[in-house]
Computed example of a mutant assay.
Amino acid sequence: MKIHTTNYTNTLIAVADDCPASRGEIPPQKGDAKSVATLQFEMLSQKPYHYTSDDVLFQVFADRNDLTESERPAARQQFFSKGQPCFRASPLTKRYGWGVHSDENGRIALLGCETEEYEKLSSDESLQVVKAMKSSR
């Protein structure tokens, strides 16, 4: 079975051109259930450069589907047996003003689009810079 990945290395996923946020915003929580954006934000803000994109996307899927620890290995293989949307399609990069930087090991961190670090990385010629997907056509 072919395994797909959403991981990037030495890449900055810049905020979408139509992102309404002018700075990195904490995604609001509505009701009891945490949104995808909230779960992603919590993981990445607490441990920058600890997780890969695949780690975060699968963990959010597993948490939202109440998978047990014993179910996770097989579920992860099944999850990545077909292509998954990467962080270019994340609400963090499309709506909430966060860039996602992937280091040389594929570990990721959030950067508010208003920060000096974001500006520095977005003009770094040694990095691949890709834009998040627009919300509108």
Rank of each mutant, 00 (worst) to 15 (best):
L39Q: 12
L39F: 01
N65F: 04
N65L: 02
Q40N: 02
T38C: 06
V60S: 13
S35A: 12
L67Y: 11
Y51Q: 08
Q46E: 09
L39C: 02
F41G: 04
F58L: 13
T68W: 05
E42L: 07
M43L: 14
T68N: 06
P48D: 06
M43Y: 14
D63P: 00
D66K: 12
T52I: 05
Y49H: 05
L57V: 15
L39E: 11
E69R: 10
P48N: 05
L67T: 08
T38E: 07
Q40S: 09
D55R: 13
A33Y: 02
D54T: 13
F61L: 07
D32W: 00
D54K: 15
A37C: 08
E42Q: 09
S45Q: 11
K34Y: 04
A37P: 08
R64W: 00
Y49M: 05
D32N: 07
V56Q: 11
R64N: 12
S45E: 10
E69V: 10
T52S: 15
L67A: 07
Q59M: 14
F41M: 06
M43W: 12
Q46A: 13
D54N: 15
A37F: 03
Q46N: 08
S45F: 01
D63G: 00
H50V: 02
R64L: 12
V36H: 03
E69I: 09
A62C: 03
Y51E: 04
D66E: 09
A37K: 06
A37E: 11
V56C: 15
M43I: 02
H50W: 01
A37V: 03
L44V: 07
D55T: 13
V60Y: 12
L57H: 15
A33E: 14
Q40C: 09
V36D: 05
Q40W: 07
S35I: 03
Y51M: 04
Q46R: 10
Q59G: 03
S45G: 00
A62T: 09
T52Y: 09
T52M: 11
S35L: 05
Q59Y: 04
P48W: 08
T38F: 01
D63Y: 02
T52A: 11
Q59T: 15
H50F: 10
D63A: 04
Q46F: 02
V56G: 11
S53C: 12
D32Y: 03
F41T: 08
D66T: 03
A37D: 09
S35T: 15
Y49C: 00
D54R: 15
D55A: 12
Q46L: 08
A62L: 07
P48Q: 01
Q59N: 13
P48S: 07
T68A: 09
N65S: 12
A62V: 01
Q59C: 02
S45A: 10
